[in-house]
Design a protein around this nucleic acid. Structure first.
Length: 561
RNA sequence: GCGCCCAUAGCUCAGCUGGACAGAGCAACGGCCUUCUAAGCCGUGGGUCGGGGGUUCGAAUCCCUCUGGGCGCGCCA
């Protein structure tokens, strides 16, 4: 019996009643049923009476009374009480037996509990991280990774067919600058005085890469034509950095289904386009659509014709395509590959790219509503109440790897998804390092481990969980917690639909808290054999939900701490 | 100047597809370990939901405006 089931019953009953008496009333398509915040308002609540009272010309409370009096008899099996409250809300109170019965379902489903078929197998591509292979990942990338991966898990759990993809910007100016920066440092190693490129990369890792190039090539690059030498440095540095990026992500528990190379997929000539590259192919389509225009020697996409605030250059005066054109081609390809929903996880600094990319969808005759962009706000690393400042270009930043080594993967992943993506996030290093209740991750994991430990004790005494005497679970806390457990699939769905993993994080904190309170107040293992078995069965369900929930966030659920 | 995001308890943040006295964690203060892990629990104090208008039976939630922050407005990505 999920919220939907309840909703259906309430919905159809109320509609039947209203249709009988006032068939002329223009009735809302669906009755809103919600779970009230406050316990005394019941397990479910609806505001129908308030909504239709005006149309009927009667007072909301009167309408509510009539509805209740005419509620079908079969509802008796489900509800112990249905009442009018407040301005005219109708509150429904479930029977305890109905609630307790649900434990069996949780137990039966185990690791599957929480899953649903909401997505009906629809193909979704979640593109995230997509960091340029021009440096190491930092805490911002880590937030993007934690978010994208958790969201992907959640979408899979609710029945979407999810592909996780990393788009590699391995073409273009930034990569060129990377190659040049490494080459200059390489020259430096041989005692040459060099000018670093103005927009180049200055981190220590550039020097390290130059050292590696020296080990491989000796001084032979010095004799080469510069463009060839830079080309070598570029390829080498890019591949090495990508390797490091993959290593960091793997250590973070993030595994991509697909690594999409801008160069290979978009810039290289492909047979299926008659020897044209995908970029050229899409370029032609834009031209055919009359969406481009030559101005000042460059080629512009007329985004302002398609809802954006301005036009954008897609082919520079020197004939090279901009990043934006690659992006158009890339997203066109996503649609061509058959994805029905495109979710992009971007840094908030890219927000202006949303409207121009949507404009390109329109120009290409695609439905832009399939594209959802989540903008992730910035992370501030805090230590001792001070912000640790970072600059990627200058190379002065704390890497994702360093933070992970310091606080561990579980803490880092949880911290990075426990806030709404649109909120700036202060990552408190001091708190993250604490192994105590102040740290929400340990708090939740501890609840799980505690249950594991109770089971160990129970086994020693020959006690095992059983569903034979669940009717002995009569404490109000027990009923309340079971209700919360039942709501878990609903929470997962909400997190999926609103693209908000943090909702799951909050839910788990609440559940862990409820358990700790219960644990402190109630002994699981008691003299009464039957009661013990019922309570063991009950807390095992809590354990299942915590484990499933943490799993979706990429956080482990240890048996022992 | 234009566009987007944000503003809720001392701090960090939920709540914002409108609903029934505004929540959590941390910090502060006072308690609880011979009994299943005290990485825990109990209690206390703490808020003009940035200001002002509007829509509504009802606004932290929607609209307008002002103020204060962040980001963007490249032939960089």
């Amino acid at each position: 019996m999920t919220k939907q089931d309840i909703q259906r019953i309430i919905d159809s009953s109320i509609k039947a009643i209203v249709r009988n008496r006032d068939s002329f009333v223009d009735f809302p398509e669906s009755i809103e049923v919600e779970v009230p915040k406050r316990r005394e308002f019941g397990d479910f609540s609806t505001n129908v009476a308030l909504v239709i009272a005006k149309k009927l010309g009667r007072k909301p409370r009167e309408v509510a009374e009539v509805l209740i009096q005419n509620f079908p008899k079969e509802a008796d099996a489900l509800f112990k009480k249905i009442e009018v409250a407040g301005a005219g809300f109708i509150n429904f109170f479930l029977r305890d037996e109905v609630i307790i019965e649900k434990l069996k379902e949780i137990n039966r489903l185990g690791g599957e509990f929480g899953k649903s078929d909401l997505g009906r197998g629809e193909r979704v591509i979640v593109e995230f991280v997509s960091a340029n292979p021009t440096g190491y990942l930092h805490i911002g990338h880590a937030r993007n990774a934690a978010f994208g991966d958790s969201l992907s898990n959640i979408l899979s759990a609710v029945g979407f067919d999810v592909t996780k993809e990393f788009y590699i910007n391995d073409a273009g100016r930034q990569i060129e600058l990377l190659g040049l920066s490494v080459y200059r440092r390489y020259q430096e190693l041989f005692g040459f005085e060099v000018d670093m490129p103005e927009d180049g990369y200055y981190g220590d890792y550039i020097r390290e890469l130059a050292e590696e190039v020296k080990e491989i090539k000796g001084d032979s690059l010095l004799g080469e034509e510069e463009s060839r030498a830079v080309e070598f440095c570029k390829e080498y540095a890019k591949d090495r950095l990508l390797e490091e990026i993959k290593k960091d992500l793997a250590a973070f528990g993030v595994v991509f289904d697909s690594w999409y190379s801008e160069y290979n997929e978009l810039h290289r000539p492909l047979n299926r386009f008659g020897g044209k590259s995908r970029i050229e192919f899409v370029m032609d389509k834009l031209r055919q659509a009359g969406a481009v225009e030559e101005r000042e020697g460059a080629l512009w996409f007329k985004a302002s014709d398609f809802g954006d605030s301005q036009d954008w250059v897609i082919i520079r005066r020197d004939g090279s395509p901009t990043y934006f054109l690659s992006d158009i081609a890339y997203h066109y390809d996503k649609v061509e590959r058959g994805f029905k929903r495109l979710i992009n996880v971007w840094g908030a600094d890219h927000h202006s790219h949303v409207s121009r990319l949507k404009a390109s969808f329109k120009a290409l005759g695609l439905d832009d509503s399939c594209l959802q962009v989540v903008l992730i706000q910035f992370v501030r690393l805090m230590s001792g109440g001070e912000e640790i400042s970072m600059s990627k270009r200058a190379g002065s930043y704390v890497s994702m790897r360093e933070v992970m080594e310091e606080v561990g993967r579980d803490v880092m992943r949880f911290f990075l998804v426990m806030r709404s993506s649109e909120s700036h996030l202060d990552f408190d290093l001091d708190l993250a390092k604490k192994e105590s209740s102040e740290n929400p991750v340990y708090y939740i994991q501890y609840a799980h481990a505690r249950i594991g430990s109770v089971f160990e004790k129970a086994r020693e005494r020959g006690l095992f969980p059983s569903d034979k005497h669940l009717n002995l679970l009569t404490l109000p806390e027990e009923i309340d917690i079971i209700k919360k457990l039942i709501a878990f699939p609903e929470i997962v769905k909400e997190s999926a639909l609103s693209l908000s993993p943090h909702k799951l994080a909050f839910y788990l904190q609440g559940l862990a808290s409820d358990f700790h309170v219960y644990y402190n107040r109630t002994r699981i293992i008691v003299e009464d054999f039957a009661l013990s078995s019922a309570r063991l069965y009950f807390i095992n369900c809590i354990k299942t939900v915590i484990k499933n929930g943490l799993g979706l966030l990429g956080v482990s659920a240890p048996e022992r701490m």
